[in-house]
Design a protein around this nucleic acid. Sequence first.
DNA 1: GAATCTCTTGTTTTT
DNA 2: CAAGAGATTC
Length: 743
Amino acid sequence: MDISQIIDPLNKAQRQAVCSEAQNTLVLAGAGSGKTRVLVHRIAWLVQVENVSPYSILAVTFTNKAAGEMRFRIENLLKTPVRNMWVGTFHGLAHRLLRSHWQDAGLVENFQIIDSDDQLRLIKRIMKELGIDDKQNPPREVQWFINESKDNGLRAEQINVRELHNREYMLEVYQQYEALCQRTGLVDFAELLLRAHELWLKQPHLLKHYQQRFSHILVDEFQDTNTIQYAWLKVLSANNLPQTQISTFVVGDDDQSIYGWRGAKIEHIREFEQDFKAGSSATVRLEQNYRSTGNILDAANAVIANNSERLGKELWTEDGEGELLQVYQAFNEIDEAAYVAGQIEKWVEKGGKRSEIAILYRSNAQSQPHEYELVKRAIPYRVYGGLRFYERAEIKDALAYLRLVSNRQDDAALERIINVPTRGIGQRTVDIIRMAARETQQHLWQTAQTLIAEQRLTARAAGSVQKFVDLIDEMSALVTDNSMSLSEQITHIVEVSLLKEFHGKENSERAQAKVENLEELVNAAKRFDDEGDPLLDAVKESNERMPETLSMSPLAEFLAHAALEAGEGQADEWEDCVQLMSLHSAKGLEFELVFLTGLEQGLFPHKNALQDFSGGRLEEERRLCYVGITRARQQLHLTHAESRTIYGRNERAYPSQFLTEIPADLIRQVRAVSQSPAFAASCSHFNNEASEDGVSIGQRVTHKKFGEGTVIDIEGTGARARVQVNFDYEGSRWLMLNIARLA
DNA sequence: GAATCTCTTGTTTTT
DNA sequence: CAAGAGATTC
């Protein structure tokens, strides 16, 4: 047993956490203080020193990425695979529990997971059936209401009608939605958690089994737990029983809580100390930062200090202060992207790797101008998040075929593809089937066949529907008869569905991309064939000690994988490329060079957060900013634009309040402000040349008029330059063609 | 029933 | 600007 390997790389506070003898340990870990390391080493410590079986350990994370990373690092440290240890996201673990105990959970064996897109469609359908005007009552609001209720552990019947303030229809939709999902074997994200929680409450024998099994529960990103997740943990750990033997170890940072909008409650950190009081408890603070330079940390500390109600934490480093933060004020988002790309080129020229660079933004749509610029300069990049692979329409179509093959009750899937590709089943026919299904409380698949048999459809419609039914049955035969591999099955289904032909016949770039995506789906299935799902393996392995066994067809496994992981990590991962992602997906990651872009009031902080009078949401935006700043190791560039295209319109933009919260002495303004709105219409040549050859463009620009060879005086901080600029008026905006310095 | 056109509406963030 | 809904035409 080699304890030194586990202990030596740790500082005092980290060691204190890893070796904690308390039954319940709370680790308050600032950004970059070695949070993951502590978790990984804690588990290694438990296994090697305290002789805890990996079988008795449950580790919970929030993203699949984090779960994979944790398992990888544990196995690296222990130098042995830990197959039967459960490591997963709350959703992933809940899903496995429900698969293993579907009967006890009141589900059908082959239940399907739906994403929020499917969920919204179902809600729209129900509202239509109930005759609720979706103009006045946006389905999105109802969706939000349902998910919020579930996140708080509330079923429809537990909701007090009076609290709805004449929005009783929401409750009605919720009830109908629940019934529909139950009838058709569909489970949404929030439902996974709620069911898993109810499983504990309704099936004490199962709860007892898992309580006896898990002696140690570890939770990462604890500040992001929502009510139902927290409740699930509390029940499992038997924290209310003084004699419980279960030890909990949670790691979190209140300053990095950025999922309040999803029901996460920072208060859980505080509550933990009161709620988990069985046996002894300890709190450890990790404040020494091993990631960023002093200046970056000072900026982060200064920004987050504006929040109230913090648990209090100040990051520090033993390393030097490093470079100043650079702030660049761009004319517009194109200019911003050009600046970023220019800096990236510099970094790479100096021998830096592209994978050390991240471009971060508040909302995914902001990736576009950056992508455009990077393509232009042939800089390889990779975008995370946004429309994920398994969320693309054509992929979801293909998956809907697979779902229907695997579960004929899946109404959501059936509705999606009954007329994709078009096969002569129109809105009218679908409406008839829907209504009939509603009357008999049957699912659509069965109803459609009944309607044909009873000749309640027109001959033409009946023929088309019959063809569809036959098609699905035929696919089903392919899948069940042969002992084909998963990827072969999917290849067949994609072929037979004629989806490729359907999308391919459209002669656009987008259509081409869709066909390629469908081909990529087959590759994804191949990869899944080879690699499988580590959590599933763990469950299978450990289920040997349970009376219930978990048996899922490869197809069902693949579908669940697609629903829960939405398809990160496909393609080009090996190439050295710049990383583009939202601030939310950047949490937990670090980069040498970080660009924090779009720092404008209304964009970041987002305008919706600014409307909130309580300020709670503004504080969450600020935490998001804190997360962004602390991603950087060496260099941090903060950019904002004077003008930004929003919904196709050019809008004036103002610097984010967060910029002013950073002490001025930590910042170097790369270029000062230009007040002329006409300049905002200029293109990127100007900015590059002007800033590149050292001209500092000043506060005011004097110009006579725009046109061929306009001469402009630029006043900088102290400096002054005269330049000749050639413009072209193109429709509605000025394009700057070139610029030359005169004096 | 399908394809095409016009008009409105809107995007924060993710399991 | 782009996607979705609704209306119109084939």
